[in-house]
Design a protein around this nucleic acid. Sequence first.
DNA 1: CGCATTGGTGACCACGCGGTCATTATTCTC
DNA 2: GAGAATAATGACCGCGTGGTCACCAATGCG
Lengths: 230, 230
Amino acid sequence: MRTEARLSPRPSNPLTREALLDAARLEFARSGLDHARVEDIARRAGVSKGAFYLHFDSKEDAFREILQRFLGVLEEQTTRRREAELAFEREVGRPGIGATLEQLMQHDCRLDTELLEVLWRNRVILAALDRATGQPYLQMVADFRRRMRQLVAGHIALNQGEGWLRGDVDPEVVGDVIVGAFESYGRRMVDLRAKPDLGAWSRAFLTLLYQGLFSPAAQRPPTGPPGASD
Amino acid sequence: MRTEARLSPRPSNPLTREALLDAARLEFARSGLDHARVEDIARRAGVSKGAFYLHFDSKEDAFREILQRFLGVLEEQTTRRREAELAFEREVGRPGIGATLEQLMQHDCRLDTELLEVLWRNRVILAALDRATGQPYLQMVADFRRRMRQLVAGHIALNQGEGWLRGDVDPEVVGDVIVGAFESYGRRMVDLRAKPDLGAWSRAFLTLLYQGLFSPAAQRPPTGPPGASD
DNA sequence: CGCATTGGTGACCACGCGGTCATTATTCTC
DNA sequence: GAGAATAATGACCGCGTGGTCACCAATGCG
């Protein structure tokens, strides 16, 4: 009687779910989670309000899926980055031992630019996050931020131990600076029309981070204590 | 008929308005502008919902006042800071010409710490802003952020022209980094119980900003091009 | 002490939107 | 083409809360 083969007399449009998510991203970016109307999301996706609820339990449900996907992508990006950093140290070395600062910066620059590419592709979500309320989602973002900060701080502390990063800067502060800078730039991307030169930003950022603002031409003697020039 | 002297047979409690603003700050920080209930704000201030509307036209009105006061304080802080920076350059000099980097950093450190003090005192508002929606208010914050970024970028560009800040870092990027770092740290303050050592953060931040992460012990020759150490 | 005046109260209204469900449209099988 | 099964629709309901307003309370004045 082939009762097991009869699955769906009228299969649902497989594109609808993704269309709804796309529409939701735009509406969330425009109005935030609270003010976005399910009606509008559905209409933008070309279906009715009822159809929305065939794919999601609630408005929050859709938002959660969008947020989780995004954080997942960032997570994966972070994992890849860590592996690339370890590989670089294994295969090339670290500054002073087999590698120059310039080589390291070129490598970091590629990785930072990749991350910025991810942020650029998902800038609509960045806009949505800025307008989002609701403890669970803010909590997820806050937790992610904290993890990133700790990751950075751990990385810095490790390399301070290795001796090639200066030890008189609290790694936690470096975490604030790096996470803050990316977030700041990401927020700025939101209302850019054309894609900016992400590589140039990375380059400048890394120069600032590793070398500092103070002009090398006026730099004091490398190891001497300050306060003896007037 | 002394109609001009009879002003208020029953004067309103002059503390009520401020109590309402305090309560509103807390509720906004807890629940955000949208989810905070006027009822709760009023009860927390010890009055009824109706009394709230004797002092404010709407919930948004109270929020606007809170936001404007805060931005005003930041604005004033910024003005004072600019004046202090000009005074320092006028009275002491700039690195290389009458002042050492250490002197400049001590001065900047005081100013940065003052700004952090302001953020610390207003950390409830920082929490509220994180949970706020509504175009006008987000716009105000976004505009303020942009102004700050431009202020920083202009300051950096100027001093690059003076020669004591390295010219190969886009001032706009420095703006992202500085504004982002303060915002990042401010956001972290929100869920700290005890007041952290703001001076230490400033010190570490400025060291990072001016000197960079790269260890001075391993620093390459001041003016020579990189890539000659292996 | 009574009256006028204004502060203060909270039950109530109105409205907007999230979510439901009876109904209709579509697509599959036989 | 009939019938079954399911996708899709949109009118409708319910709820929560912002804002109002008739009413009460406190205070100054004569």
